[in-house]
Structures are given as structure tokens and as C-alpha cells.
Nucleic acid binder design. Structure first.
Lengths: 330, 330
DNA sequence: TAATTTGTTCGTTGCACCAACATACTAATT
DNA sequence: AATTAGTATGTTGGTGCAACGAACAAATTA
């Protein structure tokens, strides 16, 4: 049996504090009386909790509730200047950094292309430079940074703060949290890109009302973030959402996935599979405008080029997309 | 957002009390000192919690730990006479009732065949009679009954205490909890049969170490109980484990399931599917001993008869079982 | 002025914690 | 065999902290 911490008074306080903060965050503005009614905590308890949140600079009073009989309520909301957060999206061929306020409003951002075939340190340093620029810009405006959150395109060890393996970058055991916290002196958190996207959809997006859903992240590969009972489900080893490598074909396929197995979903529906489909078609019959486009624009075969051909009505391009779409849907 | 109860001291006490009781249940015998070490609660807190559990008659002291240096520990275990529980398994064509002690040891049981095609009230009354016999037998031995738990072969509404629908019994909205609690004056709990079996495997059986597993319940139909993160997962509507009606065939099948859909797993792998496979084979070629067995024993086609034929080496019977097994495994 | 709703004050209750202590045994020494 | 030291167990009484409850002050409407 897994040993949870024993319950004590500090736990009670932290739970109630957190609950009140969440309520103000999601339903502001709220009065102390409303909070007491919602939480069923005593009025005096709510007052004490709110006092502490105000003391911490997380919440502030914002006018009062006019109209209605009785004493007007003092309304509370999250203090928009409670602090700022840095978000880092570490992609396969790009890096994106944003600064937000505590409510998630983006107030600074920069995105740069990156070379995934180059040196690992080079790409990390490129990111660190952008992050330092963000911090410098923030300091000038008097921001106080509460922490840094980043996403990585691979499996992640939350406790150790490392990216265990990225199939598309071919990187192993990168200690992202260590690197970024030493460089910025901030609290750093890491999460898998698809999981982070699923959390975002649940908090702010389409899945706000959904307690149970699967977020499918189709990029270079196929990732997934699985929510069950309103929480991200990681499974026994923590890779429950890695749906791209589920075998979807009953008969084993010819294509070996870069993960080593055969028949992975990702093999049938990712970007590379589309390119492969087009190439296979071109080898059989050549009634396509794609070779012409390649020659004209001096470009290698790639998704933008195939899309161009499909838009122009090219049968082979359209059918390749359709096949991949079918595999995606299966 | 779902409103949980606010945390207060009563919650803390209940949590710690429950944790200590669980530990004694799963790892007995344990001393107070060991409990303090495991839970990281203070020794005096553990003493207070244990006192309360002893006061409630749930736990008792059982000798002391000889050998080893220092004061010998007073060992604690669940009091085997803390109380008794009635378990009712409401099957499709049988009813089974058992009385256990608090540790789950069966000390009384009776099982009767039932007629699923007959009247609903008749089958329920048949069960009530057995339950009353069990209670009477228990009362004579001085048992105190803590509650009654029952399983039902269909989807269940835990809050209302009803069986919503049983595909095999063709019953709708049966208020089992109401019926049994009014009749016995006990606390009654209901659960789906497959879910209950999954819980049992997790508590006492093969899945004791598993936090994440699927229990497949192959009887008249196919049910399932799904554990995630060490807890039974019910899904949004509470039927997450109902895997028998997942479509497993890519192309829609001819066979309409009694649930109304096509291609359900259950359709390919349940008992009736085996009978159907045999019948289909007999219509094409008749080199099977099954018709002879039917005539000899004056029995309708059924699983026992097909098994008999398979044991005798009958090709058609064996192949029918094999096909169903393949569908089961898929 | 009465009624109503909001939010605060202050004393109470219940819980876990801590330090000191009593207890009951083993192990080493005389 | 008797004595003494050492060690682990479990209890006692005092403390701090969290929520609660009742009374009250505050601010408005009818």
C-alpha cells in the first residue's frame, strides 16, 4: 500500500486555503459570505483564510456589491499583479517562451526555429538565452516571477525533472529542471507536451466541462493526454498517454516504427507516413504534379508541398492525406 | 467544479482512524510503535486512535512480541468477532448467499438454482428467504450483522441502490437496496458483479499488487471491472467496465447484439456465440457427434453438451471453442 | 426605526504534537 | 544469582493550531 502523508491540521489549513483560492480564481468576484456559503466553512474561518491570501499578495479586495438589501459585500478577486510565470515550450524544431500574469494572460512571448539535428547543448543554450531575455524584460517592469513551467516532446520523469526519451529529438535523460533552475534560480516544472496540452484544454479550453477525455496531439509524432475522473492519468509507469505507439492494425505491418515495434498508430498517421504514402504512389504511376512542384520550387518532399498539391486538386496528394486521416480516425 | 466537503478536524480524525484500521487489517499483527513508524503519526496519536478502535470493538490486543531487545510490543489485530457480513450474489440463473466474519472468512453459505424466465418477484423472494435463514442462523450463534453487500448482473446505480438494466435477465430499474434493507433492517450495498469481482481480486486475489488492471468476467455475457490508480474506475456514466459491448471488429458483423449494436465483443465470445458457431457448422456439414449426443441424452444444444463433444475429440466442437477463444483474446 | 446581510471578535472544542516519564524486557557485569 | 545498564514501548499532561459558534458591529434598504 502506498503511504500517503498522515492528515494533520496543517493539511486542513492548506486544503481550505487552496479551495478558497481556486474558487476565487474560477468564479471571481466573490465575497467572503459567498465563499462561506459555497464551501460550507464558517464565516470566521473564511475571513481568516482570505486574510492569509491577502497577506500573501495573491488576492485583493475590489469594490463592493451595490444593490440588494443588507450590508454590501466586499468583493474579492485574484490580484492580477500577484506574480508572473514563464512558460517554455520545447518543440522538436522550435522553441517558444512566454511570460504570463497569474491569470494566464500572455504579456511577452518569443518563438525561434531550432535545429533538431544539431548539438543538444546548442538548442538548450538557445532556449536559455530567450528565457534570460524574458526575465530581464520582466525585471525592468518590476515583475516578480513565481516559477517556470516547460513542456518537452518526450516521456518525462516528473520527480527527477528529466526528459527520459524523445523519439523525435533522439535525446535521452536530459535534466531540464536542473539546467533551468540553476540558470534562473526559479522553481521549474516539466511536463510532457501532450499532457500539458490536455491540462490546458481541461482548464481553459474545449474540455472545461469534461472529466474524462483523451487529447490527441498530432504533430511530428502522435502524442496523447488522458484525463480520467478529472485528473491526468499517467498509469503505472507514467506513460499512459503515449497512444502513438499502440498497435492498431490486426495484421503486423511492414513498417517498423522508430520505437522498434511494428503496427504503431503513429506509423500510419504521422507526418512522415503521409510523405511515404506519396512516395509509394509516385513510384507506381506518375500522374501527379508533385515532382513538378519539387523541381520548380527546389524543395524536398514535405507536408507544405503536399498540401500545396492537394489544394491544387492533385489526386495522389489528396488520397495520401485521406489514408492518413482514416488511420488517424481508426 | 465539484464541491468536496471542506476539511476539518473531524475529517482528519476519520482519515487517520481509517488509515490505522486499514494497516492493521492488511499487515496484522502490528504494534502501536510500528503503526507510528509507518504512518509517521506521533506515538501518542496512534495510541489515541487505537484506543478508539478498541472501544469500537474493531481491534483487539493479541499477545506480545517476544524476543528482541527493549520492552516487548503489544500486538494488535482486527477482532475476528467484530461483526459479520452477509454477501448476496444475484446471478442470472442462480442465487448465492454467504455469511462471513469481518475478515472475509465464510462461515455459512447456500446456493440455489433460479429460473430467470420466471417472475421477477419470485426470484427476489427466493433470495429473501435464504437471507432470512442466514440471519436466523447467525442470530442463534450471537452474530451481530454489520451490513449486507450484493452483486447484480447488470448496470447499477450506486446512489439510488438500483440495478438499472440487466441484459441477461431483461430486468429494468430494480430497487434492490430498498427491497433488501426494508426486509432485513441492515445497511445494504449493491455493486455490479464484474466490478465486485475486480475489487475482490484487488483485495484478496491475483491483483493484490496491481494498481492498474482489467478484470474480464466471462459468464453468460462478458463483463469487466477496470482498476486505475488503485481504484475502481467507473467513468462518466458509471459503466466504464462494460467492455462486453465494445465493438472489436473493424467491419460491422451480421450479428446484432441484444444491446442493439453490431460487432460487440460479447457477440463473438460469449456462451451463446459458441452455440451459434456449432449450429452454423452443423448446417454445412454434419460430420459431428453432437446430433447423436443430443438424441441420446435428450438434451438441447448447450455448453455442457458441446464440451462433452470436444472432450471426445469432435472437430466441430473444438473449432467452435477455438474461434470463440480467439475472439476473446483479440 | 426596523430589517437584513456582511464581516469581525472572542471564547470553545477537538486534534495532533512534543517532551517527559513509567514500563517491561534483554544483556552485560559483579 | 543479583545487580545494573540499555533499549524499545506505550502513556500522561501540556501546547499550539484549526475550525466552530454566538454575539456583535457595520452598512445598507424599506
Amino acid at each position: 500500500m502506498i503511504q500517503k502523508h498522515p492528515a494533520d491540521q496543517a493539511f486542513v489549513r492548506a486544503t481550505n486555503l487552496s479551495q478558497v483560492l481556486r474558487l476565487i480564481h474560477s468564479q471571481s468576484p466573490l465575497s467572503r459570505a459567498q465563499l462561506a456559503a459555497i464551501t460550507r466553512l464558517n464565516k470566521s474561518t473564511v475571513s481568516s483564510l482570505v486574510d492569509e491570501l491577502i497577506e500573501l499578495g495573491l488576492v485583493h479586495e475590489t469594490g463592493s456589491n451595490i444593490g440588494g438589501t443588507g450590508r454590501p459585500a466586499t468583493l474579492l478577486e485574484i490580484d492580477p499583479q500577484a506574480g508572473n510565470i514563464i512558460g517554455v515550450e520545447f518543440g522538436v524544431d522550435f522553441v517558444s517562451v512566454a511570460v504570463t500574469d497569474i491569470l494566464g494572460n500572455i504579456i511577452w512571448r518569443r518563438r525561434e526555429d531550432a535545429d533538431p539535428t544539431g548539438d543538444q547543448d546548442k538548442m538548450i543554450n538557445q532556449t536559455l538565452v530567450i528565457v534570460k531575455d524574458a526575465i530581464a524584460a520582466g525585471k525592468r517592469k518590476g515583475y516578480k516571477f513565481l516559477g517556470l513551467g516547460m513542456t518537452a516532446p518526450g516521456t518525462v520523469d516528473l520527480k527527477k525533472g528529466t526528459m527520459i526519451f524523445s523519439p523525435n529529438l533522439h535525446w535521452h535523460n536530459v535534466p531540464f529542471v536542473k539546467i533551468f533552475s540553476e540558470s534562473t534560480k526559479l522553481k521549474v516544472f516539466i511536463e510532457n507536451d501532450a499532457n500539458a496540452a490536455a491540462i490546458a484544454e481541461h482548464s481553459f479550453g474545449t474540455a472545461r466541462q469534461c472529466e474524462d477525455f483523451l487529447f490527441v496531439f498530432a504533430g511530428v509524432g502522435i502524442g496523447g493526454g488522458l484525463f480520467l475522473n478529472g485528473k491526468l492519468y499517467r498509469g503505472k509507469n507514467g506513460y499512459a498517454g503515449e497512444i502513438g505507439h499502440s498497435p492498431i492494425m490486426a495484421e503486423p505491418s511492414q513498417n517498423v516504427c522508430h520505437c522498434g515495434n511494428r503496427g504503431c498508430w503513429e506509423t500510419y498517421a504521422n507526418q512522415y507516413s503521409i510523405i511515404q504514402r506519396v512516395q509509394a504512389r509516385l513510384e507506381v504511376r506518375r500522374s501527379s504534379i508533385i515532382p513538378k512542384l519539387m523541381a520548380e520550387q527546389n524543395l524536398p518532399m514535405g507536408i507544405p508541398l503536399i498540401k500545396q498539391a492537394a489544394d491544387a486538386g492533385d489526386r495522389e496528394a489528396i488520397d495520401s492525406f485521406r489514408e492518413a486521416g482514416l488511420a488517424m480516425g481508426q
